[in-house]
Nucleic acid binder design. Structure first.
Lengths: 198, 198
DNA sequence: TCTTACAAACCGACCGGTCGGTTTGTAGTT
DNA sequence: AACTACAAACCGACCGGTCGGTTTGTAAGA
């Protein structure tokens, strides 16, 4: 018996590559089959539909990213430091995995209700994470009171836009140039004491 | 002879409605024909392809929005006030025209290179507008020096995310609740003196 | 009569999904 | 060990609906 998990993994990796390169609609199941060196039949054995394959991919990627962020959160001390650490984790992780970033940030917008729902679900997870730590920072007295929900989504949107632009145009080059500016922008935006330049 | 311009306008209005409601791929040319009470033939008489029709729409909408923003800019005095006025203009305008917002903000993401290029082009126009006034504000001495490019795109992204979320989920309800929070967030983010609550 | 501005029937490439068949591993039997 | 019986995993030719685009027809104005 061939190993089910191995084939499934091959398919998901191939799907990641192809979806990231071509976008959802331009991607053919046939091509994922070829790229994974399996077949269309194998894909439909493991996944009920193209859409479900795509969602499975989004879930996995979001989970991986969240894990990296959470790991960073436990490392840092103090709410403000955590906020900054989480941001850096997101940037660095997405910077390293451009395919991942393209799928998470770029797809799932204009592709219909099901995709939009999925994207909202995932973004909400990250927004909660941010909100939680913002509220904590307020309680700590590190920053003045604010609307944590609006702030969280504003930050997510800012990150999204900058990374998407970087993915598509390459600017700014090198990417890291933007990080300190954005970091200061964010911390200022919540009335935090300006961090020392790194 | 029927009036060419009138038919063209009918088509664009119908396209606006249908694209906003269904997204690019789910929209059928046939349906735009019916909605506009013309026909598919008429559409292809006026536009060379579905894609070009969509782009024409994006251009027109972006232009209209830019005009509203610029009008507001000339009304206000002082760089900071202009920044705030422009933001409000964008919110209010997009809030009033949800279909417009859906097309400009939601479509053009995962739809392939041509769409991405178009979106980048339009966003760049707005980013320039913001950058220009930020730089002016710095020169005026109203705010400390900053990376105007990063700031501009961060703001655009934040606006985008919040409006998209509002369009898709209805939260926050009413929408205006978010405006003062976001306005303060933005002004703080550039080190501007906190504005008096409006 | 000639052109313009459409209307409507039509075409055919494309592609997600299906399904009959094949391969490969496994468990039971002798 | 060898053979049988079976099932899980996989392959890929094929189908059928869909939809962007084209062609052909036609009414009306110049």
């Amino acid at each position: 018996m061939r190993d089910k998990a191995v084939t499934r993994e091959k398919i998901m990796r191939a799907a990641e590559t192809v979806f990231a390169a071509k976008g959802y609609h331009e991607t053919l199941m046939e091509e994922i089959g070829q790229t994974s060196r399996t077949s269309k039949g194998a894909i439909y054995f493991h996944f009920p539909s193209k859409e479900q394959l795509f969602f499975a991919l989004m879930d996995r990627l979001a989970q991986a990213l969240r894990r990296e962020v959470e790991r960073e959160l436990t490392r840092r001390q103090g709410a403000l430091d955590k906020v900054q650490g989480a941001l850096e984790a997101v940037f660095k992780s997405l910077g390293r995995h451009r395919r991942l970033a393209k799928i998470l940030l770029l797809q799932g917008y204009g592709l219909g209700p099901a995709f939009e729902a999925k994207r909202l679900e995932i973004y909400q997870q990250f927004a909660s994470l941010i909100q939680q730590h913002l509220t904590e920072a307020v309680r700590e007295g590190s920053i003045p009171a604010l609307d944590a929900e609006v702030t969280a989504y504003a930050w997510l949107g800012a990150i999204n836009e900058l990374i998407v632009r970087w993915l598509l145009t390459g600017a700014p080059d090198p990417w890291e140039r933007a990080l300190p500016a954005l970091s200061r922008l964010f911390l200022r935006s919540i009335g935090a004491p300006a961090p020392s330049e790194r």
